[in-house]
Design a protein around this nucleic acid. Structure first.
Length: 414
DNA sequence: CCTCCACCGGAACGTGAGGAGT
DNA sequence: ACTCCTCACGTTCCGGTGGAGG
């Protein structure tokens, strides 16, 4: 008697799996070849080139939306630079890659830098997790770096989050690093800042900007053709031969991701999820249906995530829109929404916010893509916002129901 | 053509939490 | 322990406005 599970497991055993190396689809993967980014690589390469002759390079700022290859290009160029230096018996630059969203404070950045130096040229002294004054660790770092004549290239990934987090302090780190060159005897630091936020420059202290922004490299979004090229390259590594069922699969993934402002990360994510779907259902090939399904799943997950992490007041507002929509109203106006919101806020014993504030919350929900709003005029009957749910009512219902407090009052309001 | 609704959205201000400096 | 800042969240106040109805 063969059970269905047996069959499924057998498939895995027989190596008929869809994937050969799914890591190739992860955002951290650095391929041997980076298509469509020659211009950026050349620019960065040209700027960093002088390191090979022991001269400190300029600082660089890289701009571009998510999934345009900023991080991977920086990694790629640096790896190559180090490799080249080693090949030609030149002392390679020290490199560090720091994700500022994760390593988000002055202290941690410096500590991370110390560790990265230690990894390359240990001098026995360890830097404790915490406990030292920031000044102290700063001078430790300087001493370590200056113990030999080094050039250190620091990649600060997502610098914008550093500056956004705490306006004064974020600038401090950058200021400190950019200025450190003047305090070092024989070593030099050069910074590659990577930012998703195109307006990042405006938030920067002008003193920092003048040194950090010496060179700027712009990363434009990939178009559908380029996305397709990237996908083909990765597919060859990540999937087993013939695992992609039809030509249309890659085109579809490319097209879907192109709609998302050319986000390659998204495209790869989509492809991976599609592959996993195929794998899970025991199919031998990935077909367009899997991609569509994957798209839905990803979309659903991000919506769920954004709704779940909404502040309570925003949830209440969203809930009021949902409640009205459930009563069969297609178009909801601010006034009605506010009335329902007031009731909900009361039964939740939340503070009832003013209409002005709620209006802002509505705008935020709009920005998050959970609702659509348009300002319209109803003539004699005033000017207002027309609100609609932008996602399926069912899904919102499910998520909001899961919220302990909202779930309880759901019945009485609906 | 004018009025006037019902809200939009900018600006200034209040408040309390949290962090840095001393 | 203390003050001083900054920031997110809200409030108050208010000028502005597209178009149905007179």
């Amino acid at each position: 008697m063969e059970k269905p599970l047996d069959k499924l497991f057998d498939k895995f055993l027989q190596g008929q799996a869809i994937f050969r190396d799914r890591n190739a689809l992860r955002p951290t993967y650095v391929p041997d070849d980076l298509p469509y980014r020659d211009e950026q690589m050349n620019r960065i390469g040209a700027i960093l080139g002088p390191t090979l002759r022991g001269a400190p390079p300029s600082n660089i700022l890289c701009y571009g939306k998510t999934g345009t290859g900023k991080t991977v290009v920086a990694r790629y160029v640096l790896d190559l630079l180090v490799k080249k230096a080693k090949e030609s018996r030149v002392s390679p630059p020290l490199t560090a890659h720091i994700n500022c969203r994760i390593v988000g404070t002055n202290y941690r950045v410096l500590r991370q830098l110390c560790e990265d130096i230690d990894a390359r040229m240990p001098d026995g002294s360890e830097v404790p997790f915490t406990g030292l004054p920031t000044d102290e660790i700063r001078s430790i770092f300087k001493k370590k770096l200056d113990s030999d004549s080094n050039i250190m290239v620091v990649v600060l990934d997502e610098v914008d989050s550093l500056v956004k987090r705490d306006v004064g302090q974020g600038n401090d780190i950058l200021y400190g690093l950019t200025r450190m060159n003047g305090e070092l005897e024989q070593s030099r630091i050069s910074i590659i800042g990577i930012s998703n936020d195109l307006k990042f420059k405006e938030m920067l202290d002008p003193r920092v900007l003048s040194t950090l922004g010496e060179e700027e490299v712009i990363f434009a979004p990939y178009n559908a053709v380029e996305l397709k090229g990237i996908l083909q390259q990765r597919v060859a590594i990540a999937f087993n031969r013939d695992a992609i069922g039809e030509e249309g699969v890659i085109n579809l993934v490319g097209a879907l991701a192109a709609q998302e402002h050319g986000d390659a990360r998204r495209a790869l994510d989509l492809l991976r999820t599609a592959g996993e779907l195929a794998e899970r259902s025991g199919d031998e090939k990935v077909i367009q249906g899997h991609v569509r399904e994957a798209q839905k799943i990803i979309e659903r997950d991000t919506i769920t995530e954004t709704v779940k992490t909404l502040p309570m007041q925003s949830k209440a507002v969203l809930f009021s829109v949902y409640a009205l929509a459930n009563k069969g109203q297609k178009d909801i106006f601010t006034g009605e929404c506010y009335n329902v919101y007031s009731e909900i806020a009361q039964s939740l014993s939340l503070d009832t916010l003013t209409q002005r504030r709620v209006s802002d919350l509505i705008s935020e929900l709009d920005m998050l893509g959970l609702i659509n709003t348009t300002v319209i005029s109803k003539g004699r009957y005033g000017r207002t916002k027309k609100i609609r749910l932008a996602v399926s009512r069912k899904q919102i219902g499910i998520i909001l129901d899961e919220d302990v407090r909202l779930g309880k009052i759901a019945e009485e309001v609906l």
